[in-house]
């Protein structure tokens, strides 16, 4: 039986990049310390901040809320509010909403629930009738808007999401495949424009498998259904491709994210990004005449 390299207890996980076995206790410490270091190094959270945590109830956002609630004592005056967006996906979202409500009650964190019905007057299942292949695009646009509006209403100073290392590396690769440099740079973790609440990704250095293991060893892991629209996601193919590379060549995902940061530094000040405009209908910042949400509203009316 493999043993923890730090204490000799039975190991729960092997970290291929560092080539270490860790027991459950040391895995939890390792993950929390890496998140704490990332938050401190990048200045993502400052004392007095009110952080809106996007809490779907799935594993990533669950881990994010657990870790941030433990880091909070290190940040005087900082507070958390969890926001769950109910897209209206039959047979899927009800379970995760319940999980989110249970978690916030257990951690003593304020919880707010907003829905697509509130935002656009319809649930996602209805919106997608006949256009299921656009599910992730439409859902992504509306979720981002719903979360941003709810965060502002809650008086938040930043929005934290549970994007993990796998997510970040997949995004880099997808944008590289598209040859889309502006979009590659737009996925930056921390927003810089005064028009946007800063968006932070404290789990961006933690792999998906580490997050699942982190929750499992503490009894937080719940088997929840997968979104029925996942099969339409373009990301699915990239995920498989990248997982294969990561398994054969540990560190591939970290290298991709590091490469993106290098590109960001090289492009600092360069006219890569499209200039920011105001949506002529709602006034939200956007890159064209209409923001994506208003464009979507129009397309739904057609």
């Amino acid at each position: 039986m493999p043993r923890c390299d730090l204490c000799g207890e039975p190991a729960a996980i092997f970290q291929p990049v560092t080539r270490r076995h860790l027991c459950g206790t040391h895995l939890v410490r390792d993950v929390e310390e890496r998140v704490r270091a990332a938050v401190a190094e990048t200045g993502q959270i400052r004392p007095g901040d009110r952080i809106a945590v996007g809490l779907s109830g799935g594993k990533d956002s669950t881990a994010l809320l657990v870790i941030l609630s433990r880091l909070l004592p290190l940040l005087p005056g900082a507070s958390l509010v969890a926001i769950t967006v109910d897209e209206g996906i039959a047979g899927y979202r009800a379970d995760t909403i319940q999980a989110a409500a249970s978690l916030t009650a257990r951690l003593g964190v304020e919880h707010r629930l907003v829905s697509f019905e509130d935002l656009i007057g319809s649930d996602l299942d209805t919106l997608l009738a006949g256009r299921e292949e656009q599910a992730c695009t439409i859902c992504g646009i509306l979720r981002k808007k719903a979360l941003a509006d709810a965060a502002r209403t809650a008086g938040a100073t930043a929005i934290a999401t549970g994007h993990n290392l796998d997510d970040e590396a997949q995004s880099v690769l997808m944008n590289a495949f598209r040859g889309d440099l502006p979009r590659l740079l737009r996925t930056t973790g921390t927003g810089t424009s005064a028009d946007f609440l800063p968006r932070i990704k404290p789990l961006a250095t933690i792999s998906e498998k580490e997050i699942a293991a982190y929750l499992f060893v503490q009894g937080f892991f719940t088997v929840l259904p997968e979104c029925p629209y996942t099969k339409y996601a373009l990301r699915a193919g990239v995920r498989t491709l990248l997982s294969d590379y990561e398994y054969r060549h540990p560190g591939t995902m970290e290298n991709l994210v590091a490469a993106k940061k290098t590109i960001e530094r090289c492009c600092a000040g360069a006219p890569v990004m499209e200039p920011l405009h105001r949506c002529r209908e709602c006034g939200d910042p956007c890159s064209g005449d209409l923001c994506q949400v208003c464009r979507l509203r129009h397309s739904l009316l057609e």
């Binding site: 039986m1 190991a11 076995h21 799935g58 997968e226 996942t230």
Partner: peptide, 23 residues
């Protein structure tokens, strides 16, 4: 929870849990 190098043997109950993606 066990790592990939762990040995599985007689009378063990092994549960393989898929990590659901997305949120």
């Amino acid at each position: 929870l066990v790592p990939e190098q762990a040995l599985l043997g007689r009378d063990d109950e092994v549960r393989i849990i898929r990590i659901a993606h997305g949120g």
